[in-house]
Amino acid sequence: ATNIVGKVKWYNSTKNFGFIEQDNGGKDVFVHKSAVDAAGLHSLEEGQDVIFDLEEKQGKAYAVNLRIK
């Protein structure tokens, strides 16, 4: 899925991951530091509006192509 809109539920910059809540009511999506770095960001803030693509690997969904809304 592409261009999914959501809000950062939480992001832990020490542990380098967090979760994004989808605006469409879907399951929360894992986001890793690598996606944050690829977006040219240092971190994510709770409540921040983002747009992302959804990829699945080994049955787990995660956010890629992250951008600030």
Rank of each mutant, 00 (worst) to 15 (best):
Q58C: 05
V5C: 04
K7F: 07
N24H: 15
V31Y: 05
A35H: 07
F52Q: 00
D37T: 14
K33D: 02
V31D: 00
Y11E: 01
N16V: 02
V8F: 02
E56P: 05
I20L: 10
I68K: 12
H32C: 03
T14H: 13
Q58S: 08
V5K: 15
V29G: 01
S34G: 11
K7Y: 06
G59V: 06
V8S: 01
V31H: 00
G18T: 01
A35G: 04
N65C: 04
D49M: 15
N16D: 05
N3V: 04
L54Q: 07
F30P: 03
I51A: 07
I68V: 09
L41M: 08
S43H: 11
K9S: 05
E55I: 12
F52C: 03
K60L: 08
G47Y: 06
E55L: 14
I68F: 07
R67I: 10
N12I: 11
V36H: 02
V64H: 09
G6L: 01
K7W: 13
V31T: 04
S13T: 14
A63Y: 00
Q58T: 09
K15A: 10
S43G: 12
K57M: 11
V31P: 00
T2C: 04
G18N: 01
K27R: 14
A63S: 05
D37I: 13
V50T: 05
F17E: 02
K69S: 04
D53T: 05
R67C: 04
S13N: 12
E46D: 10
G40L: 06
T14L: 13
Q48G: 06
N24P: 08
V31M: 06
G47V: 03
Q48W: 14
K60S: 11
I68E: 15
E21G: 15
A39V: 06
A35W: 04
A63E: 00
V29Y: 07
G59T: 08
D28N: 08
Y11S: 01
G47F: 06
N12L: 09
F19C: 03
N65L: 06
W10S: 05
F17T: 02
S34V: 09
Q48R: 08
G26E: 13
R67H: 12
E46C: 05
E56K: 12
Y11K: 01
E56Y: 13
D53I: 03
N16S: 11
N12W: 09
K60T: 07
A61E: 11
G6D: 00
E46W: 12
K15D: 05
S43F: 15
G59Q: 12
K15V: 10
A61M: 11
N24S: 08
A39Y: 03
K57Q: 14
E55Q: 09
S13F: 12
G26N: 11
K33A: 11
K27A: 10
D37C: 06
K7C: 03
N65R: 10
G40R: 08
K69N: 08
S34T: 13
F52W: 02
N12T: 07
A39M: 10
E55A: 13
S43V: 13
E56H: 15
R67E: 08
L44R: 01
T2R: 06
D28W: 06
E45K: 14
V64Y: 07
T14V: 11
G25F: 10
N3R: 05
E56C: 04
G6S: 02
D23R: 15
L44H: 01
H42N: 12
A63M: 02
L41R: 09
S13W: 09
A1F: 09
N12R: 13
N16Q: 14
V64E: 08
A35V: 12
V29A: 07
I51P: 00
G18Y: 02
D37E: 14
N65M: 07
T14P: 08
K57L: 14
A39L: 07
I20G: 00
G40C: 05
F19V: 06
T2A: 11
A61S: 12
A1S: 11
D23F: 15
V50Y: 04
I51C: 04
V8W: 03
S34K: 15
N24W: 13
K60A: 07
V31F: 14
I68M: 13
V29I: 08
G47D: 07
L66C: 02
E21C: 05
V5E: 06
Q58P: 10
G25N: 10
G25M: 08
L44C: 02
F19A: 02
Q58I: 10
A39C: 03
K60P: 04
Q48K: 09
I68P: 13
G47S: 08
Q58H: 15
K60D: 07
G6Q: 01
H42C: 05
K27Q: 09
A1T: 14
E55G: 12
I68G: 07
G59F: 10
T14D: 13
V64G: 06
E55W: 12
L54N: 06
V50R: 00
K60E: 08
G18M: 01
W10A: 03
V36S: 02
K27D: 08
V36T: 03
H32P: 04
E21F: 12
S13D: 12
V64P: 00
A38G: 10
I68H: 14
V50A: 05
F19M: 06
G6W: 01
Q22D: 06
E45N: 11
G40F: 06
G47W: 05
K60G: 08
K57I: 11
Y11H: 01
V36R: 02
D37A: 15
A63W: 00
Q58G: 14
H32F: 05
V50Q: 00
K33Y: 08
A35N: 05
S13K: 09
R67L: 07
S43I: 11
F19K: 03
K9Y: 02
L44D: 01
S34L: 12
K27M: 08
K60W: 09
G59P: 04
A38R: 13
L44Y: 02
L54Y: 07
D53C: 03
F17H: 08
E55M: 10
A35Q: 09
N24M: 09
K57H: 12
I20Q: 00
N65Y: 06
G47L: 05
N3P: 04
E55N: 11
V8T: 03
H42S: 10
L44V: 06
A38W: 07
N3E: 08
W10V: 05
D49N: 15
A61V: 13
E46H: 15
V29F: 06
Q48Y: 07
K15Y: 12
E46Y: 13
K9P: 00
E56N: 12
V36Y: 03
V50N: 00
K7I: 06
V8N: 01
L54V: 11
F17R: 02
V8Q: 01
I51S: 07
D49C: 05
L54E: 06
Q22S: 12
D23M: 15
G25D: 07
F52P: 00
Y62H: 10
A1V: 13
N12D: 13
S13V: 12
H42V: 12
E45A: 13
Q22P: 10
I4L: 10
D53R: 02
D37F: 15
V64D: 05
G47T: 05
V64A: 09
E21D: 07
L44M: 07
N3S: 06
I51N: 07
V8Y: 01
D28Q: 07
N65S: 07
V31E: 00
F17C: 03
N3W: 04
G26P: 11
D37G: 12
N3D: 15
T14G: 11
L41W: 15
A63F: 01
I51D: 03
Y11L: 03
G47E: 06
E45L: 12
A35C: 04
T2E: 11
S34E: 07
N12Q: 10
D28C: 04
S34F: 13
A61N: 11
A61I: 12
A1I: 13
Q22R: 15
G6C: 01
F30G: 02
F30D: 01
F17L: 03
A39F: 03
F19R: 02
W10H: 05
D23N: 15
T14W: 10
V50C: 04
F19Q: 02
K7H: 14
Q48T: 13
G26R: 13
V8I: 10
Q48F: 07
S13A: 11
G59M: 10
V50P: 00
G26S: 13
N65T: 05
D37Q: 14
L66V: 13
N16C: 04
Y11N: 01
K15F: 08
L44G: 01
K9V: 05
K27V: 12
L54A: 06
H42D: 08
Q58E: 13
H32G: 08
N12Y: 08
I68R: 14
Q48L: 13
E21W: 14
S34M: 11
L66P: 02
W10G: 02
E46F: 11
T14C: 05
K57W: 13
F30K: 02
I4R: 13
N24K: 14
D53Y: 03
Y11A: 01
E56F: 11
D28P: 07
E45D: 14
A61Q: 12
I20K: 00
A35R: 05
A39G: 08
S43R: 09
I4T: 06
H42E: 13
H42R: 09
D23C: 06
D53W: 04
I20E: 00
D53K: 03
A35D: 06
F19S: 02
V31I: 10
F30H: 02
Y11D: 01
K9H: 05
L54P: 01
G59L: 13
S43C: 05
R67Y: 11
K69C: 05
N65V: 03
K57P: 06
G18Q: 01
K33S: 08
F30L: 05
K9Q: 04
K60N: 09
K69I: 03
K69D: 09
L66S: 00
H32V: 03
Q58F: 13
A1G: 15
E56A: 12
D53H: 04
K7L: 05
